[in-house]
Design a protein around this nucleic acid. Structure first.
Lengths: 102, 102
DNA sequence: AGGAAACGCAACTAACGAGTTGCACTAAGG
DNA sequence: CCTTAGTGCAACTCGTTAGTTGCGTTTCCT
């Protein structure tokens, strides 16, 4: 559903990637909690979290008046498998080329 | 050297990702050859190739008057290892949490 | 030699995206 | 209740970027 380039685009910003790794290392957190660590506004972080949520890298969990965001490790499987697949395609191409030269 | 978010940013565009996968599948090619397949201008593709070259996803090979670009599979190792590492960090966090609940 | 093919550079447009500020709304707590 | 903390929404600025067109340069080929 989520196209690869959308995933990569979501990971392609410095502060947004910082938000994601913060969630991966320190566990679920809210936008205001993250804003205390990262030197940008809460609204900016909120936008980043919305972007990460849109591609499934993060899930929303409303608890009363606050919203806690959780890192979704499964979404990175798509990234890892795309990378290995594409690199693998190249390797197989090299093999075919090598064999055709014998 | 190349920061992860730069790599992801380079992969975060639809047509640019198309250029890269075309090189991975069909082997080295020039900008004009790629422009015959992908519905954008040669200059646009040339810019994309420059962006991919800047992060090491592709290498330039000048041959007379034409420049042939080659896919570099090794650059994707960084992508794959980052994904598995980050997911792994999360898994270890889950393990610690699970153990602390016993 | 001279045309055609391949490329690079520069200027420009249009759109997107990151970040901010301001305000309204809702839920929690004394 | 009334205050305060946590979000969301909207409008705005500013930098970046994808894409185009135009032109000049170099290389190949007949």
């Amino acid at each position: 559903m989520t196209e690869p380039h959308e995933l990569f685009s979501a990971l392609g910003d410095r502060t947004r990637l910082g938000v994601l790794t913060a969630l991966a290392r320190s566990g679920p957190a809210t936008a205001t909690e993250l804003a205390a660590t990262i030197p940008v506004t809460r609204q900016a972080i909120s936008k980043h979290l919305a972007a990460l949520d849109a591609v499934g890298l993060v899930t929303r969990h409303q608890e009363g008046r606050e919203v806690r965001y959780q890192f979704e490790a499964d979404a990175l499987d798509t990234v890892a498998s795309w990378a290995t697949d594409t690199a693998g395609t190249w390797d197989r191409r090299l093999d075919r080329l090598r064999r055709s030269l014998e």
